[in-house]
Write a protein that binds this DNA or RNA. Sequence first.
DNA 1: TAAACTTACTTACATAATGTAACTAACTAA
DNA 2: TTAGTTAGTTACATTATGTAAGTAAGTTTA
Lengths: 102, 102
Amino acid sequence: MDKLICPKFEKAMGLLSQRWTGLILYQLLSGPQRFCTIESSVGVSGRVLSERLKDLENEGIIKREVFPETPVRIEYSLTDKGLALEPLMKELEKWSQNWLEA
Amino acid sequence: MDKLICPKFEKAMGLLSQRWTGLILYQLLSGPQRFCTIESSVGVSGRVLSERLKDLENEGIIKREVFPETPVRIEYSLTDKGLALEPLMKELEKWSQNWLEA
DNA sequence: TAAACTTACTTACATAATGTAACTAACTAA
DNA sequence: TTAGTTAGTTACATTATGTAAGTAAGTTTA
């Protein structure tokens, strides 16, 4: 009777169910951003943000680029795989506007 | 510089970011179901399932109905608010099919 | 020259969330 | 009377997260 749910779907939901991951990806939809920007706009601690960014990079959903300026600039951005989440995010925007109160 | 994200969107993402919540709702898209069915198909423990169902009921996303049969049957089903998540779930299905490996 | 500043982290520790397994309530069947 | 059912709850161990301080590499300031 177990496991009727598609493993790929389960994995996808598992990714988004990690606390902060969804908001981090949503934030990156508006363009490449650096660590401290994500940290303050999303409201996630550096400790967890660091963990999430590594996971997302390992999943191929975001990429990390180093610009050796002064001080060093490191930008995180969505890969094609990450950008492909946009329609889903738009649906969540719609749902939240239609069904949630402020 | 903080908090550029819409509070409604944040709340919606907060709901789906609770572990198991997304899968529970996805499972209920296929129709009303009882506690033990959700428990085994989703793979969540009774302890957490109980907690999630209460939260979702409080949010008006699911409803709980008691049928005084023998033994008692209790069914959980989506409200209109819950059903409205279907397009989002379809997008996640698509994404997972297109971008994830088994 | 040394103290202070910047970003991008990491570490240590406390608290909160989840997993596991046993237990309860209400009722029926054997 | 004993056992079985569903729908939970409880106690306790483990894991995840929050908080705050610390680190590394480099630059600017005093």
